[in-house]
Design a protein around this nucleic acid. Sequence first.
DNA 1: GTCTATATGTAGATAGAC
DNA 2: GTCTATCTACATATAGAC
Lengths: 190, 190
Amino acid sequence: MGTKGEGNRQRIIDAADNLFYRRGYNQTSFQDISDATGIPRGNFYYYFKTKDEILDAVVCSRITELTVMLNQCESETDDARERLLLFSNMLEYKSDDVLQSGCPIGSLSTELAKDDTELQEISRQAFVLLRDWVKQQFKVLGLENADDLAMDLLAKMQGVTVMACAFKDADFIRRSHQEIKDWINAKTLN
Amino acid sequence: MGTKGEGNRQRIIDAADNLFYRRGYNQTSFQDISDATGIPRGNFYYYFKTKDEILDAVVCSRITELTVMLNQCESETDDARERLLLFSNMLEYKSDDVLQSGCPIGSLSTELAKDDTELQEISRQAFVLLRDWVKQQFKVLGLENADDLAMDLLAKMQGVTVMACAFKDADFIRRSHQEIKDWINAKTLN
DNA sequence: GTCTATATGTAGATAGAC
DNA sequence: GTCTATCTACATATAGAC
């Protein structure tokens, strides 16, 4: 029992995840999610009481995916510096999506900052995860200001994303990614 | 003739400008603008045929304001390096607004990237103005890669804005602003 | 669990009186 | 130029049959 239901629940989350990224949270309607999944609108309320709850589930899903991605970075190398370089690769790896829709986490946070405060707090959880992980890598490398460096790295990546998306400039992503890798090396190589 | 009308037109633009920034373009309704101005909804269509036209007028208005601000930077000093430093001050000067709603230009561009392509092109005009002006300052200082440096500076400011807004962190703005000023000096002082 | 029908509100846009 | 009334579409959400 419940297997079919949980399958549908996940399909709703996956479709919403994609639509929230490509069109934005406020611009995504239940009809859009219904069209993408084939599941009728009214059925959503069996799984989620409100649209906010779908957002919450989407952010949880993203956090799970990010955790998997960060674990892969950790399993690929024991060197925290190399882990940070792998993490920064995401920028160029997701280049096409970034140019079209920006950063899934950054753009959601920016959008929800203009709505109710509670909604932005939900979206912030994903940033907290990344910030803590990056901080931990700098910490392992013996750097005192690990949290500041974590904020700096995330800010660099967000800034590149915003400008590259605004100007649809893939070359800027490539060039900036290289500069970010140089910065990571400069900070962590002694 | 027309004087009262143009006054109302500007009041609509100013209210829309503020609301587009604080709530976002898509989340701002004609009713919101009506409430803010006291001008009835239906009246808007005398001045603008569509909501898109209001957006266009708002972006034009912002470009005018930015031009004034950039002219002030130019009139304050003949040194392009100092002009860039003055420009970067905007980040800290508008700190409260940035924490609450992000960057008016960056957040609008990010939002409209998820709508129709034409809308984002409208919002991009403001970024083009800033990019060209910053580029010109670097150029005057004899730097070869002036356009790259302009993109780098804008990306830095956008990144700081996104992260500071996400974490509501005024200290991060202050610290990052100092680092940006150091970067400008490092690039332009020989 | 699934789906249809519908309630209720509000969006952008229009028509036409004044 | 100004304002009211209204159109059509679509939003979130609910009720209840199956």
